[in-house]
């Protein structure tokens, strides 16, 4: 999609010392990491650890207090509008328009990303079929079961072929079967070269990621593949690792 200075080791997301302060409170404290093209990157952390704030900065919803980051090789400080063209976003709050039908939602968001009517029409039919939503294409999204909505929202988020898609707790409240289907969709999308940046509270899901980072108190405490991390911290599961790292925070709260 974009051809700006294609470097051999180009990262889809490259973050250097990114910081966000709200008054005296530092929500995100000098985090650094990067993701490769087509990678599934799990962004973990307890509630309030700063995940959402970091993600909002990367999506151009929040301006960083300091630090650098490029997303799809555009600077989030200076070129956030260009970043926005190349990313997809699906938030924890279900974010399609509930009072529009599936088809209308796709047409609306497709239109915003500059797809032609013809493209939208063709891709919509194909998508509806793939999601088995053909019979419900003209049902208001608010009337669809949650699992279907989430799958639809994901499809809309990647509809315009973004280089990176940000998923903020995409499977919250969804049954295990649908969650598996959802992750199949994520795998299929990653295979096509789209970077998946996903936050989740389900530790079994974090095992599906190529690499994960765990945020504690605004800092990244651990970063690596699930296998590496488990070996490094001598734990059997990601669940155990998460409890071990995130515990100090939990103790402070209660």
């Amino acid at each position: 999609m974009q051809t700006r200075q294609p470097m051999p080791n180009e990262y889809s997301i490259d973050v250097q010392n990114l910081t966000k302060k709200f008054g005296a409170f530092t929500a995100v404290n000098e985090i650094s990491f990067n993701t490769k093209k087509g990678e599934i990157f799990g962004f973990l952390g307890a509630n309030g650890a700063g995940k959402s704030t970091a993600m909002k900065m990367l999506c151009g919803l929040l301006v960083p207090s300091s630090g650098q980051a490029t997303v799809a090789s555009f600077d989030i400080n200076k070129e956030s509008e260009k970043v926005k063209k190349r990313i997809g976003y699906m938030s924890q709050k279900f974010s399609l328009y509930q009072d529009l039908t599936a088809r209308e939602n796709i047409r609306f968001f497709g239109g915003i990303y500059g797809l032609s009517n013809k493209q939208i029409k063709e891709k919509t039919d194909e998508l509806m079929e793939r999601l088995h939503l053909t019979d419900f294409a003209n049902t208001q999204v608010g009337d669809l079961p949650l699992g279907w909505k989430q799958k639809l929202a994901f499809s809309v988020a990647v509809f315009h072929g973004p280089e990176i898609v940000f998923l903020d707790e995409p499977t919250g409240g969804v049954d295990p079967v649908t969650r598996r289907e959802f992750w199949e969709m994520i795998y299929a999308t990653a295979k096509l070269g789209t970077t998946i940046f996903v936050t989740t509270h389900y530790m079994d899901e974090s095992e599906y990621c190529d690499r994960v980072s765990i945020m504690v108190d605004g800092r990244i405490e651990a970063l690596g593949s699930p296998k590496e991390l488990k070996a490094k911290y001598h734990v059997k599961s990601m669940d155990e690792l998460f409890l071990q790292l995130a515990r100090p925070e939990t103790v402070k709260i209660f």
Partner: peptide, 13 residues
């Protein structure tokens, strides 16, 4: 309130 505004804000509209 619904959160759809965030969805709009991450788009290049």
């Amino acid at each position: 309130e619904l959160g759809t505004i965030d969805q709009i804000h991450v788009t290049p509209i």
